Computed example of a mutant assay.
Amino acid sequence: MTRLNYHHLQYFSAIANAGSIAKASERLHITPQTLSAQLHTLEESLGYQLFDRRGKKLILNDIGNITLGYANEIFNLGDELVNSIKNHSTDFSFRFSIGVTDVIAKVFSFNFLREVYKMDENIKLVCKETSLEVLLAELAINKLDAILSDTPLPINSPIKAYNHLIGKCGVTFFATAQIADQLSCNFPQSLNNQRFFIAGEGTNQRMNILSWFDQINVTPLIIGEFDDSVLSKYFGQAGYGVFSAPTIIENHVIEQFNVKIVGRTTDIHEDFYLISPERKVKHPAVQYLLSAGKQLFNNPII
């Protein structure tokens, strides 16, 4: 097997960032002919073209994006090594990049992710929050080490990754004390025609709750749809209606928003997954968080 030439990788990165061989050669003070030859050698060793040629411009293709992701990771590790040695530190400072789907409650993300500092208090935690689709694209090009999600990797996804179920819990419904006292006796039928806040379009939470309402023949009056679950809690706190949250964070919701429980159900549940890429070398924080996350469900303190 041909060993990777890291000089070639550095030249490739320079071309990708500059957008052309001519511009990269000016920055590196290397002739365009030499740089072009180095790129050709790298492509031959990998067995793939890394760019689509469009006139004088070079556009990264899919393989090129994956290669650039690995290159950036390699260069970041090199920078961290140099900084650790310069600081005479005996502890290597890890960088752990994780994506979090935007429907997961912030308090759960915090309690889950803070466990990583028990593994290494000097770790650099980089967290990106957006949709699963965007996060999976970044996982594919090695910008992320893992994803915390409420749904597993789609079955037909071309991305090679593992689904690790951290845990699951039921759903709790909340409202102000006055509303909760009125609705708790005949829950969940009491939610029929009641003002209700629900998660945004296309989310797993929304689909599960609407399906459950349909099964039990309950039709609440949905007066708000929010991608940010915190916003629904503020509206519920203000007395505008009922909202729901994963049971694992119910103590936090009661304390933080001064609301009461209307009722709970385990007929629907919230799932929490850690999605990790199918690599030979996994980030040590992935396995550590899996273990710590399962303990969080065994002994919930949120």
Rank of each mutant, 00 (worst) to 15 (best):
V107F: 03
V107P: 01
F108T: 05
F108L: 14
S109R: 06
F110S: 11
F110L: 13
N111G: 04
F112P: 00
F112M: 15
F112Y: 14
L113Q: 08
R114W: 03
R114G: 00
R114L: 04
V116I: 15
V116H: 01
Y117G: 00
K118I: 01
M119P: 01
M119C: 00
M119N: 01
D120S: 15
D120K: 14
D120W: 02
D120F: 01
D120M: 10
E121I: 03
N122T: 13
K124M: 10
L125V: 08
L125D: 04
L125G: 07
V126F: 12
C127K: 12
K128R: 13
E129L: 01
E129Y: 05
E129T: 15
E129W: 00
T130D: 15
S131E: 11
L132K: 13
E133G: 10
V134L: 15
V134M: 13
L135A: 09
L135N: 02
L135F: 09
L135S: 07
L136R: 09
E138K: 13
E138T: 10
L139K: 09
L139G: 09
A140L: 05
A140E: 15
K143I: 02
L144I: 08
L144S: 08
L144P: 10
D145W: 01
D145K: 06
A146T: 05
A146R: 01
L148H: 08
L148M: 11
L148S: 03
S149P: 08
D150L: 09
T151W: 00
P152V: 03
P152R: 06
L153W: 09
N156K: 12
N156I: 09
N156W: 07
N156C: 07
N156Q: 11
S157Q: 04
P158F: 06
I159W: 01
I159N: 05
K160E: 13
K160S: 13
A161D: 01
A161H: 03
A161N: 02
A161Y: 06
A161C: 07
Y162D: 12
N163S: 12
